[in-house]
């Protein structure tokens, strides 16, 4: 069974823009895609719908993380 997260993307006003299921191993790539150089934020929910990560913690989760 593949491990996945539900990735939710939010705009600067916390409006949800999109939601998609992604492989857990691509988290960093999606973070770079939707957070770096944008005003968006993302949240990751595991397969039990538990919030695992919120990009508002403002860390450098870039490609060379």
């Amino acid at each position: 069974m593949i491990k996945t997260y539900t990735l939710k993307i939010y705009d600067v006003n916390e409006n949800e823009l999109n939601s998609m299921v992604i492989p857990e191993t691509e988290v960093t790539a999606y973070y770079q895609l939707y957070v770096i150089n944008t005003t968006n934020s993302i949240k990751l929910f595991d397969q039990n719908n538990i919030l695992k990560f919120d990009s508002k913690i403002d860390i450098n989760l870039s490609q060379d993380f």
Binding site: E24, V27, T28, K43, I50, K52, F53, D54, K56
Partner: peptide, 14 residues
């Protein structure tokens, strides 16, 4: 990264 996320629960994801 996935090991950290699987090993710890972050309050409000933070």
């Amino acid at each position: 990264l996935t090991w950290i996320l699987n090993s710890f629960n972050f309050k409000n994801g933070l």
